[in-house]
């Protein structure tokens, strides 16, 4: 059953005008979808729609998910600076009113999955950028969501930390196999991670191309050196260039 779908949705803001659409996307269980497009094309808006945080101005939004089955990771770690790492991870469970011992246990287990058990008591200010992002990932995973939404989660990190985290996403994905929709403007990241890459036009974003990346998930790091990877990167890059060039001509 489709987890969430957008059918011809548009989003208009009072002063800024149209931010997205008409745009369609459906997310099936267990797949990894990358949304690629230039800044301001409405990728983040699409994610907020899928999260149920916003309603479309037009078109239909369908979500077959109940509370706690969707998780969201932002570009910034978005941690509560006053709370220790494990308390940050525990937030979704606490808000759901789970019993205290279960909350702590599951939060620590989630931190362990991202390799941060040693930093459980540290406050966000004491963590490096990469560590804070891992805490943010742990918080998203602690509820074992069926839909995981990632809004350019690695954009602010240095390239080594970033590569580490990207491999982690595959490893973590393989444990519970949630559907993942992630936003990026890094073509290589998109091709490496996703089973399907959706290229969006310049804002207001529409679908310019949809490219399937056939190699099975999760992929080893060596996938980056295969012809399939390079072919995927070229196809997506070409689609992106066309999408942006065409729209520039119009605007």
């Amino acid at each position: 059953m489709t987890l969430a779908s957008l059918t011809d949705v548009t989003v208009d803001y009072p002063r800024r005008g149209r931010a997205l659409g008409p745009f369609s996307l459906s997310v099936e269980p267990g797949e990894i979808v990358a949304l690629v497009g230039a800044s301001g094309c409405g990728k983040s808006t699409a994610l907020r729609l899928l999260a149920g945080l916003e309603q479309p101005t037009g078109g239909t939004l369908n979500r077959n998910l109940s509370r706690g089955e969707t998780s969201l990771v932002f570009q910034a770690p978005t941690l509560m600076p006053w709370a220790a790492a494990w308390k940050n991870v525990a937030l979704p469970l606490e808000l759901a009113g789970r019993p205290a011992h279960e909350v702590r246990e599951r939060a620590l287990a989630a931190l362990d999955r991202v390799g941060l058990s040693a930093a459980a008591e540290a406050k966000p200010a004491q963590l490096s950028g990469g560590m804070a992002m891992r805490v943010s990932l742990a918080r998203a995973l602690v509820t074992e969501p069926r839909l995981l939404l990632l809004d350019e989660p690695f954009a602010a990190l240095d390239s080594i930390t970033r590569r580490d985290l990207i491999e982690d996403v595959h490893r973590l994905w393989s444990q519970t196999r949630p559907a993942v929709v992630f936003v990026t403007h890094d073509v290589e990241e998109a091709v490496y991670l996703a089973s399907r890459v959706v290229v969006m036009t310049l804002g207001p974003g529409r679908t310019a191309a949809e490219i399937a990346i056939e190699a099975p998930l999760p992929r080893p790091a060596a996938f980056r050196t295969t012809p399939a990877f390079r072919e995927g990167v070229e196809t997506v890059s070409a689609a992106l260039a066309t999408a942006m060039g065409r729209e520039k001509g119009v605007g």
Partner: peptide, 14 residues
């Protein structure tokens, strides 16, 4: 308040 943190609170049904 960080608006993204607020979104998380909404998402998790606070």
């Amino acid at each position: 308040i960080d608006p993204d943190l607020e979104r998380l609170f909404v998402l998790y049904g606070a």
